[in-house]
């Protein structure tokens, strides 16, 4: 018994040693700053210099129509972007899975390439395409679509397009990973049992791909709800999102507590949506 206990204790020590670096990074780089934000968001400095608890920073957010609009826009954009990556990413992942390895690599490269470019360069690329007098405008001009309706710069549609491009690889790679675990024999078995191509996709491939689609959406959603540079550059000042608004509170008005309150709300909203959704992935 003693020997068994010793071995167990030893195994526990070894696990702890392996976990230590990760935990250390997590504490320093995540728990500490997030904790600081949480505390900052509920504290107020009184006139005599002491701190007291307050909900006023949160109140400021909820009474102002402007901030509620920003929050709703951020959420809506994140949902639409996530949906767009599912619509484009899932079929693409399926095609990659079926494709010849050379073609698969070519697609992979095309999908990942935007990630390897600087966000600023990429966004200015979209400016050239979507902006006034840009490629899109000149393409649709012959069809009588001119003026404001031909310009997607500074529109939510523009933000969705640019963000979908950047976040597509996260969806594609996650779903591809899951699809590669689904044997070709399952699809073939489906066909020999009387299901057509589309029916096999619907009743065999899609149900088995759900965990991948769920984790892909979680990543994309989390990244897009907190994204800052692309929405700011493509959307401009007229279409601020939460991350931009937080930045504004710090950089513009030095209102750290209000920035912290907004950050807390963003984090809470994200967790509230993500946790029930993540449960979906558990039951395949």
């Amino acid at each position: 018994m003693a020997a068994v206990d010793w071995v167990r204790a030893q195994a526990r020590k070894e696990s702890l040693a392996l976990l230590a670096p990760g935990i250390l990074v997590l504490v320093i780089a995540f728990l500490f700053p997030v904790g600081t934000i949480l505390i900052t968001s509920v504290l107020e400095r009184t006139e005599d210099g002491a701190f007291e608890l307050t909900a006023s920073h949160f109140g400021k957010f909820f009474v102002d129509d402007y901030y509620l609009k920003v929050a709703w826009r951020t959420l809506r954009l994140a949902l639409v972007i996530t949906l767009a990556t599912v619509i484009f990413g899932v079929p693409l992942a399926y095609i990659m899975r079926r494709a010849h390895p050379a073609l698969r690599f070519a697609i992979l490269l095309t999908v990942i390439l935007p990630l390897m470019t600087s966000v600023v360069i990429r966004t200015f690329g979209w400016l050239v395409v979507l902006g006034n007098g840009g490629l899109l405008a000149s393409l649709v001009a012959p069809f009588g679509v001119t003026g404001r309706s031909a310009v997607l710069m500074h529109t939510e549609t523009g933000i969705v397009i640019a963000m979908t491009q950047v976040l597509l690889p996260f969806m594609v790679l996650t779903v591809l990973g899951v699809l590669q675990g689904i044997g070709r024999d399952l699809e073939e078995a489906g066909r020999t049992m009387g299901a057509g191509f589309w029916q096999v996709l619907r009743v065999v491939v899609l149900p088995l791909a759900v965990p991948g689609i769920v984790s892909g959406s979680l990543i994309v959603f989390a990244l897009s709800i907190s994204s800052f540079i692309t929405p700011s550059l493509v959307g401009g000042v007229r279409l601020p999102v939460m991350a931009g608004s937080i930045y504004q509170s710090i950089g513009g008005s030095f209102d750290w507590p209000f920035a912290a309150a907004q950050s807390t709300l963003l984090l809470a909203a994200t967790l509230l949506l993500i946790i029930p959704y993540a449960r979906l992935a558990r039951t395949p």
Partner: peptide, 20 residues
């Protein structure tokens, strides 16, 4: 004819049971 249009069945070496 596509496989689903033939009245055959095939038992795979891997069994190919649908895991879900």
């Amino acid at each position: 004819l596509a496989p689903e249009r033939r009245n055959i069945s095939l038992m795979f070496q891997s069994y190919a049971l649908l895991p879900h």
